[in-house]
Each structure stands twice: as structure tokens, then as C-alpha cells.
């Protein structure tokens, strides 16, 4: 297993946002995390990446315990992520967004950077090269000199994914990657995700959209912080609890 959580819990001021959660992501899988609004999905992401500290439980990534690691450390270990909103550096150009995100690869230290040693220049050139490769990979290279904030909403989200790829992750966490996208943009991103999987990167994604779940190998369903179902997308769809959580309140 690439990622495993055991009894993961987070309490906010007496409220259990995530309760006793066990999820697993295997190498090269696309795994879905679904559930209605406020089910604690984004909190799970923040716990895994170290933005928040869990109240209880354990997170194992790639064989190592990362439970209380900070966000920049989990990135270093190989977890890339996108955000639901504020997903990029708005005042950087598209290319700069990726160059900024390629901080870790290849590595260079403060003194190299301020003194601009030949090694530093070489590494920065490599980063630029890598950034362009990723842009080509996700198909954003025609817009590389646009300011990120001037991109259409859908492309901004794709840029968020590209940025997460610059960390060279083993696992990619995508928070509602297609929310608010046009049909055309969704098709565009689906291609990108499939290509990412072909590269051997595992994906854990949050979605509301049940249809979108067909992409997944495995799905975990959350409601009020609890896991209420897991399985293949087909299995989950038949589950009564899931129907209750998703469709039971649709009358209002």
C-alpha cells in the first residue's frame, strides 16, 4: 500500500470532522473519496498533507509514518496536492507557477541560490526545462506567459494539477478537480488524469459528482466524518447507505 490511514480522527472544538477513518491507496490506483458537503473530505486531505494535525490515528505513506509531519515535508516525501480554491500563485505567469513549484527537484541550498554558483544555474535551467515538460504534458504550454489569474477557471484548475506534478509526487491528492468546469474542460482534464496514471502516479481524489467516479479503481464514501461504504464504483453505487446520504435529502 502506498498510503494507509489507521483510525484517523480530527476534532474541531468538540465536533468530529473526521472519525476513525481507515483508507488505503495502492500504487498506481485512482481512488475516489466521495460524500456530501461537509462530510470531512477536505479535512482528510489536510490531515494527510500535514496542514492539520490529527487528533488521533496514524498515516503511513510509502512505508513511513508521516502522522505529524508538516506540509512542506509531506511534499518532499512525494505527496502532491491541489486545493478546492486558491489553487495557484495568481501573480506569477503559468510558467513561473511551475518553476516556483519545482522547488524540490533538483535540490539546491540557500548559499548556492544567493551566490548563483554554476551548479545553481544548471539546476535552475533544469527546473525550467522540467516546468516546460510538465506544461506540455498537461497541454498548457501555449499559455505559458499568461498571468495565472488571467486564465479561464478550468485551465486554472489544470494548472493547479500541473503544479502538484512539479513536486514529482508518488501520490497526487486532487480536491474537486473538475468542480465548476465546462464539459469541454472536464474532457480535457480527464485526459490529463489518465495520462498521469499511465506515469505510475497514484491519485486520491475528492468529488461530489458520482458519474465522475467511474474513473476510479476504488471508492470510499464519507458522511459526517465517518466512512459509510467502500468498494468499486459499481458496488458503492448499489449501497443503500450511500443512496441515503446522496439522494435521501434530494426532496428538499
Amino acid at each position: 500500500m502506498l498510503l494507509k490511514t489507521r483510525g484517523l480522527s480530527k476534532v474541531f472544538g468538540g465536533l468530529r470532522a473526521v472519525a476513525d477513518l481507515d483508507i488505503q491507496v495502492a500504487d498506481g490506483q485512482i481512488v475516489g473519496l466521495i460524500g456530501p458537503n461537509g462530510a470531512g473530505k477536505s479535512t482528510v486531505f489536510n490531515l494527510i498533507t500535514g496542514v492539520l494535525r490529527p487528533t488521533a490515528g496514524q498515516i503511513i505513506f510509502d512505508g513511513a509514518d508521516i502522522t505529524n509531519k508538516k506540509a512542506h515535508v509531506t511534499a518532499k516525501l512525494g505527496i502532491g496536492r491541489t486545493f478546492q480554491s486558491a489553487y495557484l500563485f495568481p501573480d506569477f505567469t503559468v510558467l513561473e507557477n511551475l518553476v516556483a513549484a519545482s522547488f524540490l527537484h533538483p535540490k539546491c541550498n540557500f548559499w548556492e541560490a544567493t551566490l548563483r554558483t554554476p551548479g545553481y544555474r544548471r539546476k535552475e535551467a533544469a527546473k525550467l526545462e522540467q516546468a516546460k515538460e510538465i506544461l506540455e504534458f498537461v497541454g498548457l504550454e501555449p499559455m505559458q506567459d499568461e498571468l495565472a489569474k488571467n486564465l479561464a477557471h478550468g485551465y486554472q484548475k489544470v494548472l493547479g494539477v500541473a503544479r502538484a506534478l512539479a513536486v514529482k509526487p508518488k501520490l497526487l491528492l486532487l480536491d474537486e478537480p473538475v468542480a465548476g468546469m465546462t464539459a469541454e474542460e472536464i474532457a480535457f482534464s480527464l485526459d490529463v488524469f489518465k495520462k498521469i496514471r499511465e506515469q505510475g502516479v497514484a491519485i486520491l481524489l475528492i468529488e461530489h459528482n458520482l458519474e465522475f467516479m467511474t474513473l476510479c479503481d476504488r471508492v470510499f464514501v464519507l458522511n459526517f466524518g465517518h466512512k459509510i461504504a467502500e468498494g468499486t464504483p459499481q458496488e458503492v453505487r448499489k449501497d443503500a447507505d450511500v443512496c441515503e446520504a446522496f439522494f435521501g435529502t434530494e426532496d428538499d
Binding site: 500563485f89 519545482s102 524540490l104
Partner: peptide, 14 residues
Amino acid sequence: KAIAQSHLVASSVG
């Protein structure tokens, strides 16, 4: 500059 624009995104890239 990255941190100034978004500390969350900045730490997510390491």
C-alpha cells in the same frame, strides 16, 4: 513571493 501569494500552496510544493 510564492509564500506571499499563498502559504498553503507554497508549502504544498515543499
